[in-house]
């Protein structure tokens, strides 16, 4: 637990040390939100679309955090030399990942709340929350599944060289699109929807939106709940397995602490 707390502390301290970073992380998503909201307004879309975009923009902050601050983290640690220090210490590697994930969740939740509140007030997003506990539960499950995916990526990226950066880039935009951050996915062809269902964010975003924007309850979104629980149950052990596997492979091939590949 000490390791989890220490790594969480580093993440929170590190991410909030520079006011410019915090400002950029808040302003840029709001600008993106406004672009989509005005687009929908120009198309005379119903007012729920504003709420749809605000929730999408809020939740996508977590995906960005998972990709850049979680998945690529071991790669960065390797490049800066701190990974070696972790690997020589008698600690569980999962504890480091968990600390990184929790720190990321705390940081991003603070930013996401600001985006949600600002977005709702500025754009007058109509929110209908009948079951606040369901909203919280779905939010929690979505974030857990998403960070479990981040932990899996972090393990896989550990042996990556520069391609880690490109892979993160490659994953960013398609997930924006497939998870339905700013567009309704039910309009997409079936096979693309099938592909989108492999991303936990798709189920999470859909359920959070339905509970917060459309006022639906747990009886309506139980399928999403089951899907997210399955994601969590599969992704955590998979991340642990991948971490062990990649560490052993790295030790065998000599790539564990090899930098600037």
């Amino acid at each position: 637990m000490k390791v989890v707390y220490a790594r969480l502390w580093v993440r929170i301290k590190g991410s909030n040390q520079e006011p410019e970073w915090v400002a950029a992380e808040l302003v840029i998503p709001l600008l993106t939100l406004s672009a989509y909201i005005y687009l929908y307004k120009m198309l005379n879309a119903p007012p729920e679309f504003t709420g749809f975009v605000v929730i999408g923009g809020t939740m996508i902050a977590f995906w960005v955090n998972v990709l850049w601050n979680m998945s690529a983290q071991f790669y960065w640690e390797k490049e800066t030399g701190t990974l070696e220090t972790y690997l020589v210490a008698p600690i569980s590697r999962m504890a480091i990942l968990l600390g990184m994930a929790l720190g990321g969740i705390v940081n991003t939740t603070l930013r996401a709340v600001v985006i949600l509140v600002a977005g709702t007030f500025i754009f007058q997003a109509p929110l209908v929350i009948n079951e606040p506990l369901t909203a919280l539960l779905m939010f929690f499950l979505t974030i857990t599944a998403l960070y479990a995916l981040g932990m899996l990526f972090a393990s896989l990226f550990m042996l990556y060289g520069r391609e880690a950066w490109h892979t993160a880039n490659l994953l960013q935009e398609p997930v924006y699109f497939l998870s339905g951050s700013y567009f309704p996915t039910n309009l997409l062809p079936f096979f693309i929807q099938l592909l989108a269902s492999l991303i936990p964010l798709t189920f999470g975003l859909d359920s959070v939106r339905r509970v917060i924007v459309q006022g639906e309850g747990i009886a309506d979104i139980w399928l999403n709940l089951v899907a997210l629980v399955i994601f969590i149950l599969v992704l955590f052990p998979l991340a642990k397995f991948a971490l062990n596997y990649m560490e052993n492979l790295g030790k065998k091939e000599g790539r564990l602490t090899l930098r600037w590949q």
Binding site: K2, V3, Y5, A6, R7, W9, V10, K13, G14, Q17, E18, T85, Y86, A89, P90, I91
Partner: peptide
């Protein structure tokens, strides 16, 4: 981004 003593505190926690 951390100070010298913060870094040392962090590493002490790994042990």
């Amino acid at each position: 981004i951390l100070s010298a003593s913060e870094n040392l505190w962090f590493f002490s926690q790994l042990y």
